[in-house]
Simulated assay, not measured.
Amino acid sequence: MTIENTEDLFVEGLQHVYYTEQRLLDALSELEESSSEEELQEGFAEHREETQQHVERLEEVFEAVGREPEAAEDPVVEGMIEAHEEFVEKEPSDGALDRFNIAAGQKSEHYEIACYGNLTPMADQLGLDEAADILERNMREEQDALDELATLGEQFDYGRIEA
């Protein structure tokens, strides 16, 4: 795809965030399954449900711009997933894996917030008010998820890693 104007740039970014959200559906399941703390498992399960809603909303945005939903591979997401897989291969303790999962979740939330933070003003500039509202809603929910993960990270008992 040749990027010649703001709409092309917007669609390219939309395809990347669509891919990101789809890949994170599976990654969130992995984070849930690999976490040993119930509160953490529940948080990842809830965010997975929210992520499914984000995918559906992004499909609405594609419709608003007259495009079929199409995902474009995002190497950043692939790198985060690969980093998690490599860490798991090291056979960490449950506590170390839980803390790593919190950090992995925070990294992905920061990235998603950046994606939505870039797409929203483009949608505004293109006069896509409905799309901008949808993207802003997804971004706010990502920020809320980041806040929850930050709280879990701050409250984490590092003695669990030593045990």
Results as ranks from 00 to 15, higher is better:
4 E>A: 15
5 N>A: 00
6 T>A: 07
7 E>H: 10
9 L>A: 09
10 F>S: 05
11 V>S: 06
11 V>N: 04
12 E>D: 15
12 E>S: 12
12 E>I: 00
12 E>F: 15
13 G>V: 00
13 G>E: 11
15 Q>W: 01
16 H>P: 02
17 V>R: 02
19 Y>M: 08
20 T>K: 09
21 E>G: 07
22 Q>A: 05
22 Q>E: 10
23 R>H: 11
23 R>I: 00
28 L>T: 00
29 S>Y: 03
32 E>L: 05
35 S>D: 13
36 S>M: 07
36 S>C: 04
36 S>V: 03
37 E>R: 15
39 E>V: 01
41 Q>P: 02
42 E>H: 06
42 E>Q: 09
44 F>A: 11
44 F>L: 09
45 A>S: 10
47 H>L: 03
48 R>L: 00
48 R>Y: 04
48 R>H: 06
48 R>K: 07
49 E>L: 07
50 E>Y: 02
51 T>M: 06
51 T>Y: 07
52 Q>H: 12
53 Q>H: 12
53 Q>D: 06
54 H>E: 14
56 E>K: 03
58 L>G: 12
59 E>H: 04
60 E>F: 00
60 E>L: 01
60 E>C: 02
61 V>L: 08
61 V>C: 08
63 E>L: 10
65 V>R: 09
67 R>K: 13
72 A>L: 14
73 E>I: 10
73 E>S: 09
74 D>R: 10
74 D>L: 14
76 V>Q: 12
77 V>Q: 03
77 V>I: 15
78 E>W: 00
78 E>C: 03
79 G>M: 08
83 A>R: 12
84 H>R: 11
86 E>K: 14
89 E>V: 03
91 E>K: 14
98 D>G: 02
99 R>K: 14
101 N>M: 06
102 I>Q: 09
102 I>H: 12
102 I>V: 15
103 A>N: 13
104 A>R: 02
106 Q>A: 13
108 S>I: 14
108 S>W: 01
113 I>D: 15
115 C>G: 04
117 G>C: 13
118 N>K: 12
118 N>V: 05
118 N>E: 03
124 D>H: 06
125 Q>V: 12
125 Q>R: 06
131 A>F: 07
131 A>L: 04
131 A>N: 03
133 D>K: 14
134 I>T: 15
137 R>K: 08
137 R>T: 07
138 N>C: 10
142 E>M: 05
142 E>H: 10
143 Q>S: 13
143 Q>E: 14
144 D>C: 04
146 L>T: 03
147 D>S: 15
148 E>L: 02
149 L>C: 02
150 A>S: 09
153 G>V: 00
153 G>T: 03
153 G>L: 01
153 G>N: 11
153 G>W: 00
153 G>R: 09
157 D>Q: 10
159 G>T: 13
159 G>C: 01
162 E>I: 14
163 A>K: 07
163 A>M: 09
